[in-house]
Nucleic acid binder design. Sequence first.
DNA 1: TGACATATTTGGAACGTTCCAATTAAATCG
DNA 2: CGATTTAATTGGAACGTTCCAAATATGTCA
Lengths: 347, 347
Amino acid sequence: MNPPKVTIIDIANAADVSKSTVSLVLQNSPLVNELTRVKVNAAIRDLGYVYNRGAANLRQSKSKIVGIVVNDLTNGFFAELAVGMDLVVQSAGYVQFMAHTGENIDRQREVIASMREHGIAGLILCPARGTQISDLKPLIESGIPVVLAVRNLPGSKVSSLVSDNHAGSVSAIQHLAALGHDKIAFMGGFADTAVYQERLQGYRDGLVEAGIVLRDDFIISSAPSRAGGIDAISRSLTLRDRPTAVLCLNDAVAFGVCDGLRSARKEPGRDFAVIGFDDVIEAKSAVPALTTVSVDPQAMGSRAAQLLMKQINSGRTEAESVTTSVRLVVRESCGANLKSANKRASA
Amino acid sequence: MNPPKVTIIDIANAADVSKSTVSLVLQNSPLVNELTRVKVNAAIRDLGYVYNRGAANLRQSKSKIVGIVVNDLTNGFFAELAVGMDLVVQSAGYVQFMAHTGENIDRQREVIASMREHGIAGLILCPARGTQISDLKPLIESGIPVVLAVRNLPGSKVSSLVSDNHAGSVSAIQHLAALGHDKIAFMGGFADTAVYQERLQGYRDGLVEAGIVLRDDFIISSAPSRAGGIDAISRSLTLRDRPTAVLCLNDAVAFGVCDGLRSARKEPGRDFAVIGFDDVIEAKSAVPALTTVSVDPQAMGSRAAQLLMKQINSGRTEAESVTTSVRLVVRESCGANLKSANKRASA
DNA sequence: TGACATATTTGGAACGTTCCAATTAAATCG
DNA sequence: CGATTTAATTGGAACGTTCCAAATATGTCA
């Protein structure tokens, strides 16, 4: 380190005051005389002083750091979620440790441990698949505010912010049924996450509500990614009795389904109705524009962060569970808004 | 904070040794007797001790934190870049402050300042548009290793890692020319970034090399996003003499161009050749699969992080500039690999 | 057994802040 | 003018570690 670190004491000497006074200036306390304030500030500038927040944190035993743990930044949904969090975290004057787990539960444990050692003031966690409530036990008992986002951990006494997955699925199915479909598949995802369970249950309930019979072979699980979507749709096309519409676990899967349809010389929206879930940013501008259940990940991220901030500031430890409402945004991929609608009419 | 924080001293008492010994155990020094080691470790577990890295950092005046500043996580390229960095940062035992600027230069200044106050050991920066060399002056002079990624700041004495944009563009143009195109546009981006300049220059040089005359109206700038791509292609379609192929600033723009083409009832790959830049993860699975100049953002992120680590560990302050090589990966969107190639032959 | 080497442990200062109680200076009052 | 209030400043302890020099215990050798 080339330049010898300049501390509060150096500038105290330079400005000919005590370190205490400098400290007061730094937290701009009203106690200091205006004259000395400018004197000190001048010295600060001259010497190129940079505040040592670590030392301050140590003394005060608190920090302005929050941890953010997401699964996969590569997924547009989580990326937007992260951006939404970043926005409010930054403007609250906090800075964030951000890590991604890639669904790896060991890595998740490591990063959380590391964050604790670094003294985070709170944590937003999108739990990796297979996370147990017990994994979070020590963290929570330590009194650090935790907010679970996107995926809840049923039974845990932690604040959480999840979207109304069930209702979203139901409304999507209603829409497809109203469009005359009665062979509706559900594609993407694995059974071990709450999100999957909720969305799938919504699909089921939506079907019975519409008087459509459930078929197990129309539930096709796959990786919750674009590649997974391609995989799922191509598997579905081998079925003897094929679906004519699909509700996808998320938009990534839906995009993959569209890709797969095209490869099979079918045009999504015209030949096959597809509905996504999440409403990531590309959903709107894709061709065909994706009909999807809008979760607004960025807003969700922001809300999660706000929830955390509230919890940090008010030392409250009581858990608060909020489920954000969703709405179906109808675009083209479901066939409803297509100019050339050659759908068999019905219902 | 419910539970009273347990410190090194508490466990010293519990294990009936001195705090110094505990400290030695923590950094598992070979000096401590095996017996006392287990005794101490037991106490650590029993009391639920968590290491206070902040205090340690203060004492040692060094940290295991690096800063990562990117422009837009929402953009697949940067997201993958970030993941690549995260990978090596984490496995080097570091933790990262991650912030995104959204191309906002003020925000960039703020987050960098904040990171400095938090005592980062190094910084990887994808400078926001309009960043001046002078903006980084104090940071660099403070001796903190800095690596510029993706976008270089010409003239700055900082390490950097950029892709060979010029060569990438040239090879893309060569490919299009070999396919018989002579009306090749360049779409997306704004003139104020080095990446744009380099890729555009490669486009120009590629054209003259292929003996194709340059046309200013074929250079269509726009936001470097999917939406920008839609915008650019639709503007190009109003030209009297239209291009038949396009090299895009990046994949996002290229996807937008494809979307825009479809809206105009043209099939990318068949009716119009489009080449992207970056090779983000969706490029491969999109339909049509995107021909693009592969930059491998994740690998690039990893390399940037490695470069930074090297610099941190070896206290070296000399700047090192590496430009990573790129290669054109030919898929479908350029028409070369299309089954039904109804291209006018030539060249 | 005393001297010396080796293995292990330890007290206290230091890191750069904040905070408290206490001090000093200036101003006001009766 | 001494007493009291108000305004501004200050020294030192504390936060939880690490590191150094020094202390203690243990073993070895002649």
